[in-house]
Design a protein around this nucleic acid. Sequence first.
RNA 1: UGGGGCGUCGUCAAGCGGUAAGACACAGGAUUUUGAUUCCUGCAUUCGGAGGUUCGAAUCCUCCCGCCCCAGCCA
Length: 448
Amino acid sequence: MELIKKGRAYVCSLTAEEMREYRGTLTEPGKDSPDRERPVAENLDLFERMKNGEFEDGACVLRAKIDMSSPNINMRDPVIYRIKKMSHPRTRDTWCIYPMYDFTHGISDALEGVTHSLCTLEFQDHRPLYDWLLDEVSVPCHPQQIEFARMNLNYTVMSKRKLQKLVEKNHVDGWDDPRLPTIAGIRRRGYTPAAIRNFCNIIGVSKKESRIDVGLLENCLREDLNEIAPRVMAVLDTLKVTIENWPEDGKTEELEALNHPQKPEMGTRKIIFSRTVYIEQDDFMENAPKKFFRLAPGREVRLRYAYFITCKDVIKDKDGKVVELVCTYDPATRGGDSPDGRKVKGTLHWVSQEGSVPATVNLYDRLFISEDPEADSDDFTKNLNPESLVRLEGCRVEKSLLNAEPEKAYQFERLGYFCADSKDSSEDHLVFNRTVTLRDTWAKVSQR
RNA sequence: UGGGGCGUCGUCAAGCGGUAAGACACAGGAUUUUGAUUCCUGCAUUCGGAGGUUCGAAUCCUCCCGCCCCAGCCA
């Protein structure tokens, strides 16, 4: 109203297509709308009737009267109010006009008393309009708009519109899907605030468009998690091991394990050893190369915090798949050290039949296979990683995890950092999410 | 070919006229009951390019090159 009265805004009846033509192009100036000199009184009347719903959507708009020949297209009499006959959450159906973002932006900043209004690079061209509006409309102060580059991470998408598409097309299981870079998602995934703050500090703020390596984020995460996460043992892909020289009478033994090797103040816990234990399928290889420090026929390894065991026999099913190992243990190595000074190259994590409970584990990986999903295809959903979620059933975790608090970080030794899922995990059915893996030098070396 | 931005290591990023920080990645090595952690060591004679100013330039000037954004009654 103020702008109209000052002769700085007018109701324009051009159609959308006409307005586009009148606007000119990047290199040619635009030309004035025939309605540009409409008298103030008429503008006031028309605007009132727009508000009241006397016109259909698109019939006319309110435009700021600035400069149709400006090299900045945003200044060529931008639309500031248009008719939209939709119900407003607050004013319901009494107002049929809605302001454009550019009109609202500066004014709401000013009303809120904001001193600096931060936004992204694409609004740089809008700043003259932002300032124009603040100069022409009576507001308590004149905030300063400053633009910065948005943060891009590789192997994911960050824009709300794209994330919305992923949610709506069911490519993910909702806004809090742990694969999504949403607050709800990364929280459920187990990301910590401290890690994210540190990450933000490290990457800095600039006007340069960049794409940051998620590896950096993951590193910040590991740095924090390594400090705070208690260690625990879990076997994801189980391979049964029978200790043949352990009594068959159901004898179990309690052993003591450190909650954090570098932080004795985090205490210890009891773990249970018995005749039947499980190790990771990956930790056994029938024809192992010398550099393979784990279990193989005839080789001896340490079961962490327990005993040295030696593989005596391999049991396979009819398809030739290894289903069970028969081993012997050395009673003298209780706790994991050999009195004769004998050294062993590998230490494996394990879990015993009696000391563990079943669990489901969600292995999350990057959502996209492409570093820049938006650029590498006309449809970014084509670059989705089919293995961004691998759900493992039948895992076994040590019993101390029965009362794991949702979203609290644990390190599953030798595997990564995990947390109980805040939605799906219960004491009857434990569900853990992998936050991030441990750094795995062996995986890198073994692949070449 | 109008206007607005941006260009320093593979990826981020300090630096603002006094002779290229740091982090991640990468490559070696040491310690290790997690092939984890930790710890050493190496990694831009050069800052998009070319000229110029200066005792001295990534920093100042000129020209050039490359990339991004803008022609919604979207935000």
